[in-house]
């Protein structure tokens, strides 16, 4: 194969410049600013600031609430990722087998993708409203007094359900196209060797879907961590009270509502480290088990 090379050694850098400058301006600079701010306690209007060393980090980690928020974030992320991936895979496998009217099914399953997170939160509020929510009424029929916004468990569950519902279509689209990418000859060969459809799925189809699955796993963890913010904010009506919140929501709550720049910067630096470690773990450990064709 012929190797194509640039004549001038600076041209590739020049072509990369727009991308690099966007990364620098919108990621590196704010990140550096957050690291700097996390060592100071600053007057919100910017008149005075005091260097406090690691105090912001110590205050954050030592608060009992931070531990509770962390625990909820982990549980929430696990359930959102598990259910949105699991249900989407199930729906994709079933939709893949539909012969008649398949595009109607697919459209019906995908439209939710177009719903903005705050709108999803709003729909969640209507469904789970303490006074008029139909799901609350249904729960009352089986004797469950569901109270979103008052009961910690109920609120967390409602938030998880809305977040899962919102994320299924994205996963569905990717799984479906992944399934359609598996060649018919492989499937037919497998069908000759093995009669059990379930076994065929786990031994042939699932491993071939693994690259898609791995990609979606990362996307979904990121989603549960960061992008559920809109849903949470709308469902809690910006007044969290004793309700569960995620680490990202706490950064917003302390930084934007409370104007505590130092404290919320320290929290975002911690979050940055967590994401960093998570990425390494994912690519070092999990990706080794994924086979690309």
């Amino acid at each position: 194969m012929k190797k194509v090379q640039f004549q001038n050694r600076w041209i590739p850098y020049l072509l990369l410049l727009p991308q690099l400058s966007i990364v620098a301006v919108f990621f590196l600079w704010p990140a550096a600013e957050a690291v700097r701010a996390s060592f100071f306690l600053e007057d919100p209007f910017g008149f005075g600031s005091t260097f406090v060393g690691f105090d912001n980090f110590i205050d954050t980690v030592s608060s009992s609430d931070y531990l509770r928020v962390t625990r909820f974030t982990v549980v929430f992320t696990f359930f959102v990722t598990f259910f949105s991936l699991g249900l989407a895979l199930l729906l994709a496998v079933k939709a893949d087998k539909v012969l008649h009217g398949s595009s109607a099914y697919k459209t019906l399953l995908m439209w939710v993708y177009a719903v903005a997170p705050p709108v999803a939160g709003l729909i969640g509020i209507l469904l789970f409203d303490q006074h008029v929510g139909p799901i609350v009424d249904m729960a009352a029929l089986v004797g469950w007094k569901m109270q979103i916004g008052v009961n910690y468990f109920d609120t967390g569950m409602a938030m998880t359900m809305v977040a899962v519902w919102k994320q299924i279509p994205v996963n569905f689209i990717f799984f479906l196209s992944g399934l359609q990418g598996i060649s018919k000859s492989v499937q037919e060969a497998a069908a000759i060797d093995c009669r059990s459809g379930i076994r065929r799925f786990w031994t042939v189809t699932f491993p071939l879907l693994a690259p898609t699955g791995f990609f979606l796993l990362i996307i979904n963890i990121t989603y549960a961590f960061f992008d559920t913010f809109g849903i949470i904010d709308v469902m809690l009506k910006t007044q969290p009270g004793n309700d569960p919140i995620t680490l990202v929501y706490k950064v917003y709550q302390d930084g934007f509502r409370g104007n505590d720049l130092g404290g919320s910067s320290a929290q975002s630096v911690i979050l940055m480290l967590v994401v960093f470690v998570l990425t390494i773990v994912q690519f070092r450990l999990i990706e080794r088990r994924v086979h690309y064709t």
Binding site: V150, Y152, Q239, P240, N242, D254, R257, G258
Partner: peptide, 16 residues
């Protein structure tokens, strides 16, 4: 504002 958030959280715990 944050002190009020703490109060709201703790009062929620009392009532729950």
């Amino acid at each position: 504002v944050q002190i009020r958030d703490v109060m709201n959280r703790e009062y929620g715990k009392i009532f729950a």
